[in-house]
Simulated assay, not measured.
Amino acid sequence: MNFKLLVVLLVFFLFISFSVSAQYLEVALVSDVGGFGDKSYNDQLRKSLIKVSENSNLKLEFRESNLMTEYQSNINYFAENDFDLIWGVGFTMEQAIKEAAQMYPETNFVLFDGVVEEKNVMSMIFNKEEEAFLAGIVAALTSNSSKVAFVGGQDTRTMRLYQLGFKAGADTVNSGVEVISRYVGSFNDFSAAKEISSELINENVDLIFYAAGAASRGIIDTAIEEDIKLITLDSADISLAPNNIITAVLKNTDYLVKQLIENFGNDNYNSEIREYGLDDNAFILEQNQLSDMLDEEKIKRIEEYKQQFLAGEIELPSVP
C-alpha cells in the first residue's frame, strides 16, 4: 500500500475515534428518596456514570431527592439547563419523568427500572424471571436440606415472576429440591416477615430468597437468629448479615450505563421501553460475597448453568 495513503487513512481513523470519544455530553442523575449512600441503585448508577466519565468527555451532575415532592424540581433543573441526558431511578419517579418529558420534548431522559411511555424517554426494565433464575441456581447448589423458599412482599405479577424464575433455577440444578413460596402481604410489615420466615424454618427450609422491601429486615433478623442462608436483590443487605447472605443478584449497571452512554454519543440511542435480560449481560452476582460463601467448584457450576441458558438449552416456563 502507498505509504502516503496509509498515513492519510491512519489520520482519518484517529480523527473519527477522537471525535466519538471526545464528544461532549452533559449527563445528570436524580436519586429517588433512598438518596446517595443507599448502597443500592442510586449509588450503583452514580458510580457507574463516574466510571464512564473517566474515559469519556462527560460533564456529570447529581441531585439527591430527600422527598418524593422534590423529584420534579430536581429533574426540571437539569432540563432547564439543557443537559443532554437525565437519569431517574425507579417506579416512584415515573410521574415526575413523564411530566418533565412532556414539558421538555427536546430533552432525553432515562428511567432505570420504571416505565414511562413518552417518545423522549428510555425506560430500562428487567426480566425478573431471569434475574431470579440465577438466585434459584445458587439456592439449589447451596441448600443442605433441599428445601428452599421465596418470600415476596405482596402477591403481585412482579413477585410471581420472581417466584417462577427462582423455582426454574432450582429445578434446573436439582428437580428434587422443594421450593416453597410465601407472601408477607406488605412491603413494610417487619413482624409478618419475621413470622413467615420462622414458619419456613420450622418446615426445614434452610435458604430464603426474598424480595420484600423494608419488611426484609424481619427475614434477615430471623436468618441471623436461626443461622440459615439468604439470597438478596440488594447489596446493602450484605453488611447486615455477612455470615448468612450467600450473594446478591444485581443489575449490571457498569456495563449497561457504559453501553447506553456510548450509544447516545454515537447516535445509536433509541428512546424506547427496553427489557434487559441475561442475553444483555444485565445481571451479575455480587462476587466478593459469593467467593467468601461458596467454593470455586460451585461458582463454576453457576456459570455453566448460565451459559446453558444463553445457549438455549434451558427454557423458563411461560408466565401467565
Results as ranks from 00 to 15, higher is better:
residue 119 K to R: 12
residue 61 E to N: 12
residue 88 G to S: 14
residue 45 L to F: 11
residue 56 S to R: 15
residue 109 F to C: 03
residue 61 E to C: 05
residue 100 A to D: 05
residue 115 V to P: 01
residue 126 F to M: 10
residue 99 E to I: 15
residue 71 Y to N: 02
residue 103 M to W: 00
residue 68 M to T: 11
residue 93 M to K: 04
residue 82 D to L: 14
residue 118 E to V: 07
residue 49 L to N: 10
residue 64 E to N: 12
residue 45 L to P: 00
residue 115 V to R: 01
residue 83 F to V: 07
residue 22 A to N: 15
residue 89 V to L: 08
residue 25 L to S: 13
residue 65 S to G: 02
residue 67 L to V: 00
residue 121 V to D: 07
residue 46 R to D: 01
residue 35 G to Y: 00
residue 113 D to V: 09
residue 72 Q to K: 12
residue 122 M to V: 02
residue 35 G to N: 07
residue 63 R to H: 06
residue 57 N to T: 05
residue 35 G to S: 10
residue 92 T to K: 10
residue 80 E to H: 05
residue 123 S to K: 02
residue 100 A to H: 05
residue 33 V to L: 09
residue 92 T to C: 05
residue 69 T to K: 14
residue 22 A to V: 04
residue 104 Y to M: 02
residue 80 E to F: 06
residue 41 Y to M: 11
residue 62 F to Y: 09
residue 37 G to V: 03
residue 42 N to D: 04
residue 102 Q to P: 01
residue 66 N to G: 13
residue 109 F to H: 03
residue 98 K to W: 02
residue 52 V to R: 07
residue 36 F to P: 05
residue 22 A to L: 06
residue 45 L to V: 15
residue 19 S to W: 12
residue 91 F to D: 08
residue 120 N to Q: 07
residue 108 N to F: 11
residue 33 V to H: 02
residue 103 M to P: 01
residue 85 L to R: 13
residue 92 T to N: 12
residue 77 Y to P: 03
residue 20 V to N: 11
residue 63 R to S: 10
residue 106 E to C: 02
residue 31 S to H: 03
residue 95 Q to R: 11
residue 29 L to D: 06
residue 32 D to Q: 04
residue 79 A to Q: 03
residue 74 N to Y: 00
residue 84 D to H: 13
residue 87 W to D: 11
residue 44 Q to F: 15
residue 118 E to I: 05
residue 100 A to C: 07
residue 43 D to G: 04
residue 49 L to Y: 09
residue 26 E to K: 15
residue 89 V to H: 03
residue 22 A to E: 14
residue 101 A to Q: 01
residue 85 L to W: 09
residue 71 Y to F: 15
residue 48 S to W: 06
residue 32 D to L: 08
residue 73 S to C: 00
residue 24 Y to Q: 14
residue 124 M to H: 07
residue 81 N to K: 12
residue 35 G to H: 03
residue 111 L to T: 01
residue 102 Q to F: 09
residue 88 G to T: 10
residue 82 D to C: 10
residue 65 S to W: 06
residue 21 S to W: 10
residue 102 Q to R: 08
residue 125 I to Y: 06
residue 39 K to V: 13
residue 40 S to Y: 11
residue 81 N to T: 09
residue 117 E to G: 03
residue 20 V to K: 12
residue 94 E to W: 08
residue 87 W to E: 12
residue 72 Q to L: 12
residue 44 Q to R: 15
residue 60 L to V: 02
residue 74 N to I: 05
residue 21 S to A: 14
residue 108 N to E: 14
residue 37 G to C: 05
residue 40 S to T: 13
residue 83 F to L: 07
residue 88 G to K: 03
residue 119 K to V: 02
residue 102 Q to K: 15
residue 23 Q to M: 08
residue 106 E to I: 01
residue 87 W to I: 08
residue 57 N to W: 00
residue 92 T to L: 13
